[in-house]
């Protein structure tokens, strides 16, 4: 059992507040992705969990044990680094067995575990080579095998796929998911790539300016963003936002159309809708077509609604011309509302 609890963690580098008020519980064997743009603090949080960095405040618990005062090796963790950090002077075999050798495991145990994890990562034929003789993808596999060979309670990964080319990244992503699911370890995975996050995670923690903005399942984060930032960050193209004016109790006027919205909101709210939750209709938001990008399966149409840029993903057989004015109707149950002052979602 390796549940991870992060309690009130904060980190300051001099004047700079890198993390504030981080509270997160990661269940045993859960795959948690920390997602955010660069500089949001996600790597710092990972380094605090693994012990390469010390939190200014707060506690880290792994498997019911407080670990923030322990050395990395005593935390029951293993890590995959962004640049792999595969030791150049050791063979693949000795790289995978490095942690086991440090634990002074007997030779035959090292051999057994190295060979087993090498097989799992399909690198058994590379065991005698040096990292200079490996491709990026193979080095990545060695780095993962080295972590798995430790049979850790928790495996931490810092942007492990970001240095691979696109095709290899897809392949490794699927493989990582399979291997980690079989290994029964808890995983924390840092990335700035939302597609990677969506496809791998049991839960995503979206981070922004040193805070966790939302921690939820990928579908929940996508469908019900807790903050305007999440709505704009997740999804490609991101969510559309339009200004709304209060018409009546629970009624809001958006670009001349009236929609059911939040009752309680006293300040002004914003209307939000995902580009794929829109369809052309008899009546709807009047949109002037600016740009049409055929993407094969869909058309990505950039329009102008009420003076605001608005994107819609529409059926590819639709015949549109730039400059044309069309009516776009949002699916009523997919409309979201955000408070303009607090940036929070309102129902």
């Amino acid at each position: 059992m390796a549940e991870i609890q992060i309690k009130n963690v904060a980190k300051r580098f001099g004047e700079y507040q890198a993390l504030s008020d981080i509270n997160l519980t990661i269940a045993d064997q859960e795959f948690m992705v920390l997602l955010g743009a660069s500089g949001c603090g996600k790597s710092t949080l990972l380094r605090i969990i693994c012990g390469l960095e010390t939190a200014t405040e707060g506690e880290v618990w792994i498997g019911g044990r407080r670990v923030d005062h322990l050395a990395p090796k005593d935390r029951g963790i293993a890590m995959v680094f962004q640049n792999y950090a595969v030791f150049p002077h050791l063979t693949v075999f000795e790289n995978i067995g490095f942690g086991l050798r440090m634990q002074k495991q007997p030779n035959d145990e090292v051999k057994r575990r190295v060979e087993r994890t090498a097989e799992l990562m399909h690198i058994e034929q590379l065991l005698g080579r040096y990292s200079g003789e490996l491709s990026g993808g193979q080095r990545q596999r060695v780095a993962v095998a080295r972590a798995l060979a430790m049979e850790p309670d928790v495996i931490l990964m810092d942007e492990p796929l970001s240095n691979l080319d696109a095709l290899l990244r897809l392949e490794m992503r699927a493989e990582l998911k399979g291997v980690l699911a079989e290994s029964n370890t808890t995983a924390i995975y840092v990335t700035h790539d939302q597609v990677e996050a969506m496809s791998l995670a049991d839960r995503i923690s979206v981070m922004h300016q040193g805070r966790i903005v939302q921690a939820a399942t990928p579908v929940e984060v996508y469908r019900n963003p807790a903050e305007r930032f999440v709505a704009g960050f997740i999804g490609n193209p991101p969510m559309n936002f339009l200004p709304a004016n209060r018409a009546d109790a629970g009624k809001w006027t958006v670009a001349g159309q009236t929609y059911d919205g939040p009752h309680a909101a006293d300040g002004s709210v914003e209307f939000a809708i995902r580009p794929e939750d829109i369809a052309p209709a008899e009546s709807g938001l009047p949109a002037k077509v600016r740009l049409i990008e055929p993407l094969g399966a869909h058309l990505l149409v950039t329009c102008d609604v009420d003076g605001t840029m608005f994107r819609a993903v529409l059926e590819s057989d639709l015949e549109l011309k730039t400059g044309e004015i069309i009516n776009l109707a949002p699916h009523a149950d997919r409309i979201r509302w955000f408070d303009k002052s607090t940036q929070q979602a309102v129902a």
């Binding site: 390469l52 050395a71 990395p72 090796k73 963790i77 950090a85 030791f87 080295r146």
Partner: peptide, 18 residues
């Protein structure tokens, strides 16, 4: 020598001397 090698060694249990 890239600093990541030291971090990797530390995480995988190497003491400063090691």
């Amino acid at each position: 020598i890239p600093k990541e090698y030291y971090e990797a060694a530390e995480v995988f249990g190497a003491s400063p001397w090691k």
